[in-house]
Amino acid sequence: MIDNDLLFHSNEVFIIITGALAYIVMLRLPKQFTRQQTIIMLLISIYLSALFDNTLCVHPFNFYYVNNTSIPGFWDLMSYLMFGPFAYLFVYIYSILKKNRATYFIYIVVWAIVALFAEALAWHAGVYRYQNGYQMFFSLPIYLLVLTVTMIYYYSYIHNQEE
């Protein structure tokens, strides 16, 4: 009984802790971007997580559902907000790196692997509940796509303005 209660709450605890840590790290970093750019980066992460969760969770795909029910609710909204700072951190670290021709490729691959590891933790915490044969590995192309889109944003909106 106690274990079931803990399992029920573990996803919410995961979302609160991860989200709070991510926002604290983002706010503690020295400012590198304009306020408009910061808002857009937060929105990119929130939008992409909401988009994929509300696309892969619907019939006939039904590959997984987030948190406790198949219809998105309050904690699903919180999980979208939790993702907010990750595009910011992704772009922030990349913008201060010394780059060569292969940097973006290696950087995206490393972030995709870290994202898979984070998804494994979220799955253990009960944030994601897979069904219809979906496996965690299937998320890899989605992460590669999402990170590439964020990189395109950096090069077309931030890097171009800096030059």
Partner: peptide, 9 residues
Amino acid sequence: LFLFLVSSL
């Protein structure tokens, strides 16, 4: 970009 993101959300 901002409007596209907020309207989509």
